[in-house]
Computed example of a mutant assay.
Amino acid sequence: MSPRLAPDRQHTLTAPAQFRGVGIHTGLMVSVEVRPAEADSGIAFLRTDIDDRDALVPARGEAVCRTQLGTVISNAAGVTVSTVEHLMAALSALGIDNAVVALDGPEVPIMDGSSQPFIEALDRAGRRPQAAARRYLEVLEPVEVVEDDKRVTLSPCDRFEMAFEILFDSPAIGRQQVDLALDESVFRRELADCRTFGFFHEVEQLQAAGFARGGSLDNVVVIDGDTVMNPEGLRRPDEFVRHKALDAVGDLYLLGAPLFGRYEGVYAGHGLNNAVVRALLARPQAWRLITLPTELAEAG
């Protein structure tokens, strides 16, 4: 495990973190190197397979261009990077403020469908504090987005809290809820290993539409009727809602700073997550950037 985080300092990696895997939607093999970056530079993705235009894509909420079955970001040159949410969740949980994610393809590898492989790669690389103070985004007023029966709310809180509720017709899932005060140790213990999921009857249609071409029982929990098809079964009885919370952690890190606030998601997904990020940023009176007082940082 990486050394203990200094919560009042920005952090980057000590050395590059490397991994390789298949993109769940494209089916392409992609190699990734998460590189250290200067203080105050934030998180950005660099498409090393593109050399005829700007290939750097900042990981920010306004850069999100699609949210169907994953979060896709793009830059002004039209360069895109897909399925960023699981890696962004790992970077958020480990307190990595500044990094360049260099990849030689259009999609972050799905690995095992969770954030755990990314956590392990980042741990191997290590992290180091930087001289610059870490800025947190503090929610000052509630912000809510609603779409039919789906809802996401961000409200004031003196820490980062995550509550999520899902409901599916399949008895393999049903109604599940999770409510956590999130920090690094809680994310590692409660969310990091929870995998993405899908339904067997949708596979053919998804693949015909250009999705799920790299999906398998090695990287997706697949439900067929009332049954989980994966031979090893579930990692947790409520793995499904915990993965949705993991997704939300990654989507919220596109705010560009760690959050002091409470997230509540009901039947939500990437689209509403990005909608609430944009809604918050569009209301300057509803948030502010703060640094931690020294005594609070030392108390952890």
Rank of each mutant, 00 (worst) to 15 (best):
L69Y: 12
H86Y: 09
F187T: 01
Q18V: 15
F164N: 11
D123K: 04
G23S: 13
I43K: 07
L5H: 09
A212V: 08
E141K: 04
R66K: 14
K244T: 00
V277T: 03
A77T: 11
S74W: 01
V22T: 15
L28D: 09
L234F: 07
E144T: 15
T294R: 08
F168G: 07
D218S: 09
D238P: 11
T26Q: 02
A99F: 06
P117N: 09
L56Q: 08
I96Y: 06
I96W: 01
Y263M: 02
L217N: 01
H201A: 12
P58Q: 04
N98K: 09
D54P: 14
P156Y: 03
D183M: 03
R151V: 13
E202G: 04
A181V: 15
V145C: 02
G198I: 04
D179H: 09
S82G: 13
T67P: 06
F164W: 11
F200P: 00
R124F: 10
R4D: 15
E107P: 07
G210D: 11
L255M: 03
Q130W: 04
R195V: 13
A268Q: 08
D224T: 04
G27S: 06
L167H: 07
G256R: 00
R135N: 12
C157E: 14
R60M: 14
P231R: 01
L272G: 04
Q205Y: 04
A192D: 09
V186F: 05
N273S: 07
R189G: 15
A37Q: 03
G271T: 08
F211N: 09
M29D: 15
Y253W: 09
D54R: 02
D247S: 08
A248W: 00
V241N: 00
F45A: 13
P293Y: 06
E62S: 12
V203L: 14
D104V: 12
L122I: 12
D51F: 07
A282H: 02
A248S: 13
R288M: 08
L46R: 15
Q10A: 05
A77V: 14
R60S: 14
R175E: 15
E38N: 12
P3Q: 10
C194G: 05
Q116W: 10
T153M: 11
A279H: 04
G214T: 11
F240G: 00
G300P: 08
V222L: 13
R128I: 15
S31V: 05
R135Y: 13
S92I: 07
L259I: 13
L255T: 09
P284V: 10
F118P: 03
E295M: 02
P106G: 12
L246R: 01
L217T: 10
N230E: 11
M1H: 06
G198H: 00
S2G: 03
L46Q: 11
G23W: 00
P293N: 01
A15P: 05
P293G: 00
S115H: 08
L87S: 06
L91A: 11
C157A: 15
L103C: 10
V249E: 04
P16T: 11
S216G: 15
L140V: 10
D247K: 05
Q18D: 05
P142D: 07
L292T: 06
